[in-house]
Design a protein around this nucleic acid. Sequence first.
DNA 1: TGCAATACATGATAATTATCATGAACTGAT
DNA 2: ATCAGTTCATGATAATTATCATGTATTGCA
Lengths: 229, 229
Amino acid sequence: MQIKSPDCTVCQFRSMMFDSLSRDELGRLNTCKSQHLFGKGELIVREGSAIQAIIYLHKGLIKLHKTTSDGRSQIISIARPFDFVGLLSVFSNDLYRYSITAIEDSSVCFINKDCIHHEILNNGKFALDIIRRMSQATDDVLQAKFSLSMKHLRGRIAHILLDFAENIYNTLAFDLPVSRKEISELIDMRPENVIRILSEFRKDGIIRINGPEIVILKPELLRQISDAG
Amino acid sequence: MQIKSPDCTVCQFRSMMFDSLSRDELGRLNTCKSQHLFGKGELIVREGSAIQAIIYLHKGLIKLHKTTSDGRSQIISIARPFDFVGLLSVFSNDLYRYSITAIEDSSVCFINKDCIHHEILNNGKFALDIIRRMSQATDDVLQAKFSLSMKHLRGRIAHILLDFAENIYNTLAFDLPVSRKEISELIDMRPENVIRILSEFRKDGIIRINGPEIVILKPELLRQISDAG
DNA sequence: TGCAATACATGATAATTATCATGAACTGAT
DNA sequence: ATCAGTTCATGATAATTATCATGTATTGCA
């Protein structure tokens, strides 16, 4: 659902991406953006479709994911507001390499690709900014994946729980935004094992599980398990 | 060892990276580059050291790699001349995230980071070019790693053999440029298993092994094993 | 409210992969 | 040429992870 979007010049996200644009440039961007609401589970971008816009997230939580030839799904990353997302192939390809789906009700801003190109061509500072953010974002994804591949299943679960607590929710008690199956797609294991290991952590008194809520009781121990691999 | 480097304006690699630069701009670049030779096994860039230059490869073969906290090594990617490399964090960080090592005798061009920054700031077309290449390069690495994580050991070995044959050497008979151990660091498994599976492939008549040389006898079968996972 | 579909849970077992041990072949340096 | 160190090679075994089977709880919807 499209909604009325704030003027770029007063948007709270301006400083995140568009700090290096002048008032005039922001005004131009304003004319080629639109904002949309997506319900939990709703597809925002379909892998393989033509790239028309870069996106960023005003509110909610989204996942980048892709489906492999044999029908299995992989989650590349989870992004929250202020994260730089959607550029992960916007400039290298005519087609989106990944799908994007809302995992919580989300408000998404679409900025036409050609407009961004235009500003890059005409504002070197902005270009350098984009390069920095892009570079950082892909570095982070790679970093996360490499670190995961070194860990055993328990270490991966420990890591992802701490990640949610520390980087997404900033609290040791939070509602899991994704199913066990989605966790399994994010950290490359089987859903049964996600469930099993969460149960083990519960039995060991490391976490508490109340329906969708996870409470981390022993973060130090979880950290230890994560670091051990 | 530093060597005399060709003038950027007549360099065969100009079209690869610097097509969008004017003669003047190329002239400026010329003053902030240097070219060096590295022997097989020699370290070109050390992970964690301050970023001073972007690099590209004139001749040879190099690997990007990193060492994890517990002392294990991972290879991010292997790059050959004309591949875009070294930017995988040059703009997001003050420190190199990865080491770079020559895996064949190599000739490497270093271009001062600040010079590149300067050109990006003043030439939007060049900036967009860099963004495209960077985006493509990181996409490729991510793609490769995600695809690997879906495969069993045999599939990974099959994949990497075909990759060498098709993308690096353009022939079904080639000398392996890396040890079994390095292969294991590239495709995330144990050296023993690399050796074992290569032996199996040999016994099955899929490949022939003559010392360092690998000859792929049944590429279709290898493809099948790679695709099956 | 009740039904169907999906998510969660757990045990038993199979498949895959890592580890350990041992020895041969190769490599580089004296 | 020889020795030491590394790489390559292979078997036996242990550890990890996936698969299958089965049942309960939860969710969405008619």
